[in-house]
Design a protein around this nucleic acid. Sequence first.
DNA 1: GCCAACGTTGGC
DNA 2: GCCAACGTTGGC
Length: 154
Amino acid sequence: MAKQYWLMKSEPDPYSIDWLKKGKKTRWEGVRNYTARNFMRDKMRTGDGVLYYHSSVAVPGVAGLAEITAGPVPDATQFEPKSPYYDPKATPNAPRWFAVEVSFRKKAREVIPAMLMRQTPGLERMELFRQGRLSITPVRPEEWKLVTSMKEYW
DNA sequence: GCCAACGTTGGC
DNA sequence: GCCAACGTTGGC
């Protein structure tokens, strides 16, 4: 399958692009939304490109690039009673939630504001804007090309 | 902190 | 299977 692209939201306190850069990679655990789950479980593959998005901050937007480097595997936190992501209905034989591995690739010189993207021809139809609260959304190849070629930000 | 959007839950 | 109530997300 051809390489695909995604936008993944993260709250930079504490999961910022700097945090990802420092750890190099992370398991994307804790997603508890079926649409996002289905993207990870059924569509995401190693090598896919990721726009790393900072949400719930003064200037939400794309803070960097990442790549899917493994997965999906069952999200271990669903089996841990003490985890905030514990799901009593999930069992190892019938896991409900999945996680992919996300690896750091690049940090933007400056966050590309979502508001700017919304006004940029070619980006205004991004799924990010259509499904505002979804934490993982697909990105079209032409949108990826546009965002990653905004020279002033990279 | 407010609130609109919308996903999830549970009673029927 | 419907839908009201409720909870969460996230921009502002």
